[in-house]
Design a protein around this nucleic acid. Structure first.
Lengths: 233, 233
DNA sequence: CGGCATCCGGGAAGATACTG
DNA sequence: CAGTATCTTCCCGGATGCCG
């Protein structure tokens, strides 16, 4: 029978769509299903394989991930690409338009960071952390500050460059940076957003810091969280 | 039995939450359920009653609307307020923080407007139309253009003010504006976003135009849709 | 192991009818 | 008008198993 494959590309069935010309409503038709936006988030720093996505999206199940990847591919948000041999792995990569979704995460994140119920001490993926640097950088505190910060999280390596009040945060080789943090993303987040002293994190073995320790101390002060609601004004 | 009422404030059960410190993930915990963002959208121009929300959110059912309103109230996004007599009606109104969600709609809308599957000819609420003016205004085409445009949609009246390339769009009295459109929101959208000539809409009775007809023709050219993907730059 | 299908249980969404 | 009660349908999440 060879199983005929009639799954239908998992575009939301027409009954399940908002029949609404509003752009935001159509965005929700495309990426409003559970996990869809977080799948995009995990790809914003570059292509990933199925297993990496499953690992970094703690709690997603394989079948849902498959459905979301199908739906997002059908919507034109990402493409499935087969890497050439040496390692003929399959990866999922955002289309140029898919990459343009990043401002959605910035406005969502900035807004929700003010929620009384937001808990920055929850687990966090490396991509989320790097994207949060792009969103939360304080240009005033960062102006006339130049540094390259390397991050080693799991098997991946990332670089944050500060220059002229602007920030770049992307995948890249950490070696040669002014300071290098090695450890899980939540430990780095604890220093940057939780106010946990670097000494403490190093002492308990959660974090390793190489290079300019003074720059490291500066770095973790550059990303202030907005005031929670209720503390207006 | 009097039915015991244990509805529970409808904050997503913990199994259903992303346990993720990422701000965007938390935003989805708060407003990621179906219809939640559209409920917020309908309140961005001011308070509404239950029935108005149900009418303007075509397709929502009463029980889902009730659940969303409960959840959004529990999240601190909106409050339920009882108007004082003459008409002691109940209305739902965004909190100050709820109003701060508007940029979410702008980034979502701008992004999705480029989707190949976006269809601007679908039905549209009056609020969506007004918000789209804030999002889609072309400051270049609007610069050195000053006008007040009144919109009468259903029983509500709205005003769009253009000055110095900036736009204001809000509830307000249409009388006295330079030009006044009267008709359903989709008809106005057809002129602005669908390129349908005003003559045609007036001729078929979909739209009434009072005041400066020349300004009306200018107005409908001020909100260009971004290029669809595939027609890249 | 990566990718995908299948079956199942629970729960959220949708439709309809009903109540104060 | 502003919701509630109830029933059905569908989606989500987990487990398992197949195939390369």
């Amino acid at each position: 029978m060879k199983s005929q494959k009639v799954t239908g590309a998992s575009i939301p069935s027409s009954r399940r769509r908002y029949e609404d010309a509003c752009g935001a409503a159509h965005a929700l038709d495309l990426v409003g299903e559970r996990w869809a936006l977080l799948v995009i988030r995990e790809l914003l720093l570059g292509p990933k394989r199925f297993g990496d996505l499953k690992r970094d999206l703690a709690g997603i199940s394989a079948n849902v991930l498959t459905q979301r990847l199908e739906g997002l591919e059908a919507a034109g948000v990402l493409i499935r690409r087969r890497l050439p041999p040496p390692v003929p792995a399959q990866v999922y990569e955002l289309t140029p338009w898919g990459y343009e979704a990043e401002p959605i995460f910035q406005t969502l994140g900035r807004w929700a960071a003010r929620s009384p119920s937001h808990d920055p001490s929850l687990p966090l993926s490396a991509v989320s952390l790097l994207l949060s640097f792009r969103t939360m950088i304080d240009p005033v505190r960062a102006e006339r500050l130049e540094m390259r910060v390397g991050l080693r999280v799991g098997n991946e390596s990332y670089v944050v460059r500060l220059a002229g009040g602007a920030v770049e945060a992307e995948r890249g080789e950490a070696a040669g940076a002014d300071v290098i943090f090695t450890g899980p993303a939540p430990a780095i987040a604890a220093a940057v957003y939780g106010g946990v002293p670097l000494d403490a994190l190093v002492a308990q073995g959660a974090l390793k810091i190489e290079g300019d320790r003074f720059l490291a101390e500066r770095f973790v002060t550059l990303f202030p969280l907005p005031p929670k609601v209720g503390a207006e004004g």
